[in-house]
């Protein structure tokens, strides 16, 4: 089982906290658990928290885009929160701006937006 990401249901929103040492073997498991729990709980939205990440490389960027894609297909709007300023600057330089992923300034902001769209 994956130890590199936590899933928490808070106020009908599925929180995904990605840990820094997430690796390839954790990803399918994480996608599977996320899709299943969103389906089972009828979560109104997904918030991916990356505040623990000191860096986001193209590998983790791909994971984020995939999780957001799964959320969208399950009609569970997905927000990314907690990105550090230096990480954002570096991602832009990498050419990875994650255009398909919605972002919010913080968890509270994401929850407000998700409530507003209901």
């Amino acid at each position: 089982m994956s130890q590199s990401a936590g899933l928490y249901l808070v106020d009908e929103i599925m929180l995904v906290a990605i840990d820094e040492d997430i690796n390839d073997s954790d990803i399918v498991d994480l996608q599977d658990r996320l899709a299943q729990r969103v389906h089972d709980t009828g979560a109104r939205g997904i918030v991916i928290d990356v505040s623990a990440l000191e860096i986001v490389d193209t590998f983790v960027g791909r994971i984020i885009a995939q999780l957001a894609g799964i959320g969208t297909l399950l009609d569970s709007p997905t927000y990314l929160v907690g990105m550090r300023p230096a990480v954002a600057m570096t991602l832009v330089e990498l050419g990875m701006t994650l255009p398909t992923v919605r972002t919010a300034r913080n968890l509270q902001h994401a929850l407000e937006r998700l409530r507003a769209t209901q």
Partner: peptide, 17 residues
Amino acid sequence: RVIRRTRLVTAVSEIFR
């Protein structure tokens, strides 16, 4: 500085992988 550290660590992460 954080930004310089982040840039190098991100770059090596790509290369190491």
